[in-house]
Design a protein around this nucleic acid. Sequence first.
DNA 1: CATGAATGAGATTTCATTCAT
DNA 2: AATGAATGAAATCTCATTCAT
Lengths: 193, 193, 193, 193
Amino acid sequence: MALLQKSIDKRTALLKATLCLVNSGGVQSASMAKVAKMANVSPATIYLYFDSKQDLVNQLYLDVKTSFAASAFKEYCPKAEVKTNFEKIWLAMATYKLTNKEEASFLSQSDNTPMIDEATRQEGLKQMQPLFDLWTQGQKEGLIKDISPYLLYAYSIYPIAFLMNMECRGICPLDKKVIAKAFEAAWDSISLK
Amino acid sequence: MALLQKSIDKRTALLKATLCLVNSGGVQSASMAKVAKMANVSPATIYLYFDSKQDLVNQLYLDVKTSFAASAFKEYCPKAEVKTNFEKIWLAMATYKLTNKEEASFLSQSDNTPMIDEATRQEGLKQMQPLFDLWTQGQKEGLIKDISPYLLYAYSIYPIAFLMNMECRGICPLDKKVIAKAFEAAWDSISLK
Amino acid sequence: MALLQKSIDKRTALLKATLCLVNSGGVQSASMAKVAKMANVSPATIYLYFDSKQDLVNQLYLDVKTSFAASAFKEYCPKAEVKTNFEKIWLAMATYKLTNKEEASFLSQSDNTPMIDEATRQEGLKQMQPLFDLWTQGQKEGLIKDISPYLLYAYSIYPIAFLMNMECRGICPLDKKVIAKAFEAAWDSISLK
Amino acid sequence: MALLQKSIDKRTALLKATLCLVNSGGVQSASMAKVAKMANVSPATIYLYFDSKQDLVNQLYLDVKTSFAASAFKEYCPKAEVKTNFEKIWLAMATYKLTNKEEASFLSQSDNTPMIDEATRQEGLKQMQPLFDLWTQGQKEGLIKDISPYLLYAYSIYPIAFLMNMECRGICPLDKKVIAKAFEAAWDSISLK
DNA sequence: CATGAATGAGATTTCATTCAT
DNA sequence: AATGAATGAAATCTCATTCAT
């Protein structure tokens, strides 16, 4: 058990190191040697936890995406109203991205780069299922536009990533007011009327 | 003249090869050797046209961004109405991205990856100036929400990239109907009322 | 222990290979690939022991200079007479250069070439301190001309390198008689009377 | 004739550029491209004047050695006394090295480095013939020690190079007094009594 | 379980040289 | 005579991965 604990710590340290390095210089700058050094282990040790660099990055992606989804849907309540639920989820997502900038930045890189396996990406997408369900419900109730969930995602969720990037680069600070305006825009783009 | 022409051809071939390789596997997989081979020149020749790999990628970014902007603003007419102009620009952008998928895919990668110099990125941003001007005008006329241009961009322009990615991966085909719906969502997100 | 021993062996083999290659064709002809092959390791292995080619050459310089100084001053005895001491040192130096031609040849190259860092060169110079001290003592005792140590070095020590070069090129063989004459010339150039 | 003149200028410019570059970073840093640029010609032009890089360096060596010898023996008068003649030559050499530091530095590099062909080096050595003749004369007259000319050279001429190097590195400035002391040491090392 | 050492393959970049003009 | 463009070969250095311990 002590050993297992230790192992989990190392796995976590390795993922954390990878996250940090990929963020600051892309996948190419996250060499296994640097990852190992930052996680205070030997390069060889990485291969006890991951099959390859590709596997390391994929697992990181899944881990982060899962933690992102967990945060997003924590307060999701199937019985509540659609808009209320959407707002909760949207805010939770925005909050997660503001609070966990490294993770957010990594996800936005992964989404636009061939660095993650297609299969893994699909796996990550499944985590968003509750949101898709909510939209279907909203469409049935005539609250949300009857368009493809990809459009809904593109207009109501995806923009958050752009705003995050701007914030991280110091170009556009995100305070509560801006967040509120952003949510408004998100809702306006997908809601009927 | 013959010499100069030849040179321009090679430069173009090199940029084209880089574009193609970066798209299929990220910057890291676009090795100078592969780029050279695909452009049918010796690796050493690349350095007659570009200072370094970084310079090659930066110049590609600027070239593509410039061609994108040229297409986007081709029919922009300062005297026309704001919404008409915005629609023209938006459609031109969408058309460009649908017609030049490689370029579009490259731009979306560049925007979320540390592969382009910050300075070069800023340079590229300037190309979007006419759009910013249009928004300012729209805000004065009370047609467009009084929010930061970054928000406007995030909600009305940035989503196009997401839709492109989905189309490229065969997940969400973009026909005229979807495009129309997308524009609607874009306009709804930023317009007043 | 086994590991450490092995490491020292490899470091030594790499330095030895570099020495040999630099001697036969200058720094430029001592490519990392050739050094690696001659030391029976992979090129990558070199970088486990040295930071860069520059570092490799610098360390070689320091190693050789140190071993040279060790030989030179082995029998140096502060209590003995100045001339006796000088003769011992001078002969030890000449003997070292005759016995270790590769090292001697390398040192004479280093001293006239921009291949060694200035800092490293200074470091190497410190090894000659006992000789400088001896000269100072000799000057106090009125045995040695009251001139800059650089002049003393130029006339009594530096010429050995020239003779070595000639010997190596088969131009001027150095037997005991010649050595004796050479020492005489050295002493005549720096001694008073 | 105009053409010939032009050619000589270019040859000179190329040699000058090579001299400068070899001095500041060794042969390896004097790439043909850099030499061409510094001489304001195309790389291809170099090959109209020299067969190869090796040939370029060899010819530079011979040119410099010849100009050095010309200066050294300008005032040499077979009828004058040995010591007078030697002093004239020695001073002319020292003066040349002080006045033409670039050339001097290059010569001292060439003499200790495998960068010059052995054949070319021999060729250069011939230029020193008048000095060897003078020594022979001096030995006959019982003024100069009866030792190999290589010893004589090593002790009376070679040290100048060392002093030059020190001066160039700012370690040991050479004023008239030091020069006088240096000559004294030179003469003491080779003269009888 | 953990590692330091080792490496073959490959990355970016430079170089001496040639050739069409 | 002169050149700018081009290049194959090679230089330095890095990397993902393995293996003996």
